[in-house]
Design a binder for these strands. Sequence first.
DNA 1: AGAGGTACCTGGCAGC
DNA 2: TGCTGCCAGGTACCTC
Length: 271
Amino acid sequence: MPELPEVETLCRSLEKYLKNEIIRCFHVRQTRLRLPVPVADLKNLVGCEIRAVTRRGKYLILTTDDWDILVHLGMSGMLQMVIDEKPPGRHDHLDIVFHGGKILRYHDPRRFGLFLPVPSPAVSHPLLSHMGPEPFSPELSGHYLYRRSRNRRITIKQFLMDETIVAGLGNIYANESLFRAGIRPLKPAGRIRREEYDKIVSSVQNVLSEALESGGTTLRDFMKLNGEPGFFKPKLKVYGRRGEPCLQCGETIRVVTLGGRSTFFCSNCQK
DNA sequence: AGAGGTACCTGGCAGC
DNA sequence: TGCTGCCAGGTACCTC
């Protein structure tokens, strides 16, 4: 369930739950994630206090003094606070056990996620250092996207999903943003005008902040319920609506594949 | 350099 | 009921 708004909400909840907690130990049951969990390096974190929990793109960063932990949820990852001594289930790959008894449990059936101890600061790690601006940073502007897109023949949708261009914009919100901006996802990025990029930036920010509100509620329930996935169902206008009528004009929502990802659009509203 | 395809995994669901 | 094939919120790596 890891969309950027959900990762952001998770980040805020974790900050509250984990700040000033001291790591007692790790229980690693599966090391084979997107990158292998370097078990030997985890020793560097034992006894360390969590200073902050932050987010960069869809990565979570648990910060201590000299080492940080980089967490990515991939397609199917979840983090949950385990209060009692609940036995780990299938795909509960890893626990962080804190002094005082709190446990943070990493669960990821598809194992596309990542759990990586890295020397501070995590933001200079190669996985993060090449990332583009955050969707809400002032760096992300119509001017910026216009400049980065010149001479690019890639489609605008793939361009927006390139994390070196914008950090953390996933498939759902790339689709939704382009619908709101009235721009067809198949249009080459290099052929989009400056004013259209202004519109794209505000669409991205509006969609994400609206989703953040709904995502937040779901995530709080999720934490309270000790891992019940919840039913986060944002008000999607195009994503997942193949064959259904466009909510603006009634035209049938179409789907194409771009970069291996399903891409939904209204051929009447999006030019 | 940029673009397209593929690989990494498991689970859920539609269709037979 | 049970099998098969397809699809899924992500990212990195390979080839052309």
